[in-house]
Structure formats: C-alpha cells, structure tokens
Computed example of a mutant assay.
Amino acid sequence: MSLTRADFHEQNQASARTEALRLFEQKAVLQRAWLSWVAAQIYTLQPAAYASMVRRELARLQEISEN
C-alpha cells in the first residue's frame, strides 16, 4: 500500500519542521556561506517530496525572521 500525498505530509511534517529549524539555526553561524551550505544539505534529503517540505518550512522561517 502506498502513502497518499496527505499521509506522507502528515507523517513527515514534524520531522521536516525540525530539520528546517536545524538548518535555519546555522544561518547566524555560517552567515554568507549559509546559502550554499543549506542548498547542499537540502540536496541530500530524500525523497524529493521530503526535501520540498523542508524547503517550504525554511522559507516560512525566513519570512518570519524578516518580519
């Protein structure tokens, strides 16, 4: 039985949020090097749907930090 997209999202949302927060917290440490570092980190995440979830969560964190 394969997971629906909604099931996959539900099962992986907490993990994606945790991973995004871990990556986002390195922004202050790495400063200018962060963007290329975080891109490389996201590139290694599997499956692609999970990497997309982390990317969206990072974008949300970035938006919150700018406001």
Rank of each mutant, 00 (worst) to 15 (best):
I64P: 07
L21D: 08
R17M: 11
Q31N: 15
Q41Y: 09
S36H: 12
D7E: 15
S2Q: 09
E10D: 13
L58N: 03
S65A: 15
T18H: 10
V38K: 00
A40Q: 08
F24W: 15
Q41A: 11
Y43D: 11
Q13K: 14
S2L: 05
E66I: 07
R56H: 10
T18E: 06
H9M: 11
L21S: 11
T18G: 05
R60G: 07
R56V: 05
D7I: 00
W37A: 00
R22W: 01
L23Q: 08
R56Q: 09
L3C: 08
Q62M: 02
A16T: 10
A39C: 08
S36E: 12
P47R: 06
T4R: 14
M1N: 07
I64F: 14
V29C: 02
Y43M: 03
L61R: 12
N12C: 04
E63M: 01
L3H: 10
A33I: 02
A14T: 12
A6W: 00
A28R: 04
E10I: 12
S65W: 02
A40F: 05
A33V: 04
R17V: 03
V38T: 01
L58M: 04
A16P: 03
R56C: 12
Q26T: 11
R22S: 06
E63H: 03
D7A: 08
A33H: 08
A33E: 14
L45Q: 06
A49Q: 09
W37G: 01
A33M: 06
R60E: 09
R55M: 01
S15A: 15
A59E: 13
R22G: 01
L30A: 04
V38F: 01
E25F: 00
E10G: 06
H9G: 04
E10C: 06
A59R: 15
L21M: 11
W37L: 00
S52G: 09
F8V: 14
L58A: 02
Q11F: 08
L23Y: 13
A20D: 05
A20K: 06
A14W: 01
E19T: 14
L21T: 14
E63Q: 07
T18C: 07
Q26E: 15
F24S: 03
L21V: 03
H9T: 14
R55G: 01
Q46K: 10
Q13N: 06
E63P: 00
R5Y: 06
A33N: 11
Q46G: 00
E19G: 02
